[in-house]
């Protein structure tokens, strides 16, 4: 798990590049390259799909559907470079479709909250780190659902396709950029307020 995280971090800038290489190799007949593509992008697809407030079963289904669609429709991707963007767009569209269909929103928050419940006090540095991540957690959850979704998507997919993103967020394309800026500014305000809350 730790190894996985470290790899995610160091690859963050180049995961799209790596994916394009796997995709190119798969298309030229290297079967194993598809497995590598799945391994490198599934964690990101998971995060993007979960931002649509699907429960875990539904999210798994959407991720699978996305990959099945890739295997069946990959001829439509002209540039191997575009495979990452294509997968993210397909996943967001499918997540949005399922979310509208199901209109069930409740379970997610509880699951995540439960997962975060045990807090073990450790040495000082760990306590400080936990405080900071708690502050971020609380501040993020004070944002509007739309801001939360937008920031989670952008945190994992730094250049999303704005057309499909706008569609699935129910806002005009032109307002994505400004909204993104406003959401980040709001989050920074909330974090600053959390930081100074001990003085109140």
């Amino acid at each position: 798990m730790t190894v996985q995280k470290a790899a995610d971090k160091s690859d963050e800038g180049s995961v799209w590049e790596v994916s394009a290489r796997h995709f190119r190799r798969w298309r030229t007949g290297e079967h194993d390259a598809l497995d590598e593509l799945v391994r490198s992008l599934t964690p990101i697809l998971w995060q993007v799909v979960r931002s649509y407030r699907l429960d875990r079963d539904q999210a798994e289904d959407v991720v699978q559907t996305t990959w099945l669609t890739l295997v069946r429709r990959h001829e439509s991707i002209a540039e191997p470079q575009a495979v990452g963007a294509w997968l993210m767009t397909t996943a967001r569209r499918e997540a949005w479709r399922v979310a509208k269909l199901a209109e069930r929103q409740a379970p997610m928050d509880d699951e995540i909250l439960t997962a975060r419940l045990p807090h073990h006090p450790g040495v000082d540095t760990e306590v400080i780190a936990a405080d900071e991540s708690d502050q971020l957690w609380h501040s993020v959850h004070k944002l509007s659902p739309r801001c939360q979704r937008l920031l989670r998507i952008i945190a994992f997919d730094d250049r999303p396709d704005y057309t499909s993103l706008a569609e699935s967020l129910g806002m005009p394309i032109g307002s994505i950029g400004p909204t993104r800026g406003r959401c980040l500014a709001k989050l920074k305000d909330l974090l600053a307020a959390e930081g100074s809350s001990t003085h109140v």
């Binding site: 798990m1 995610d8 975060r116 993020v140 920031l151 952008i154």
Partner: peptide, 14 residues
Amino acid sequence: LGDIAAMWREADPM
């Protein structure tokens, strides 16, 4: 945004 990604990876892992 990097911090947000790290937070979600930990709170809601695949």
